[in-house]
């Protein structure tokens, strides 16, 4: 009698162990066939400023270099340390701080063309990687602030230096959502009693 009971319990335990193994096997390999290629997954994490500070021609070439293992993960200043952490988690490598000679991280900014100085040379339009500058020859150019990624690639070609970078978050208009019941910025601990 106890032998039969023992056998039943044994079978139950084996069945349970099988279930646990199967479920953790699924957790280990989350259907690799459905995932997009590694370069695309890396590209999805990169901030898409297309600024070239990593030494590549854009975010996708950098992602491809990372996927091939040809570059290190700490080359993207716009992504910040958070971006490096995400890349490290995706590529199963260790967190790598920025190199000492890396370009400094800046807060997000958008380009602004001084309309009085612009001579309409179209050089900045050719430099903009996301087509965020409008204008034509000998006409004043303007930047679509919503589309500008702040890559600063338009600063160098401008012959009259009429482009400047403005911080993107200093406008009161950016505080629109949540008005005004929800505070927008960090609330200092203890300030709401």
């Amino acid at each position: 009698m106890t032998l039969v009971l023992r056998l039943l319990l044994l079978l139950l335990a084996i069945w349970l162990l099988g279930k646990v193994l199967r479920s953790s096997a699924q957790k280990l390999r989350p259907a690799t066939s459905t995932l997009p290629p590694l370069a695309e997954r890396i590209d999805a994490i990169l901030p898409q400023t297309q600024c070239g500070q990593c030494g590549h021609a854009g975010c996708l070439p950098y992602a491809q270099a990372l996927a091939r293992g040809e570059d290190s993960i700490n080359r993207c200043p716009p992504g910040g340390e958070d971006g490096i952490r995400k890349l490290a988690a995706l590529l199963h490598t260790d967190y790598l701080p920025f190199a000492a000679d890396a370009p400094p991280q800046k807060p997000k900014a958008v380009a602004l063309i001084d309309e009085a100085t612009c001579i309409g040379c179209t050089l900045c339009i050719q430099a903009c990687p996301v087509d965020a500058i409008l204008g034509s020859a000998k006409q004043m150019h303007t930047v679509l602030a919503d589309e500008c990624t702040g890559c600063e690639l338009c600063l160098a070609p401008c012959p009259v230096d009429c482009i400047s970078m403005r911080p993107a978050t200093s406008q009161p208009a950016d505080w629109r959502w949540g008005y005004p019941v929800i505070a927008i910025k960090a609330v200092k601990p203890g300030s709401s009693s």
């Binding site: 032998l3 023992r6 056998l7 319990l9 044994l10 335990a13 084996i14 349970l16 162990l17 646990v20 193994l21 479920s23 953790s24 957790k27 280990l28 988690a89 199963h92």
Partner: peptide, 28 residues
């Protein structure tokens, strides 16, 4: 590592079940 952290609880349950199997089998 990170993966072991995520699997810590299933690993504990699996080891417990394996022990149960071994004890039952050995006793039988």
């Amino acid at each position: 590592d990170g993966q072991a952290d995520a699997l810590a609880l299933p690993a504990a349950i699996a080891m417990g079940l394996a022990t149960a199997i071994m004890l039952l089998l050995g006793g039988g």
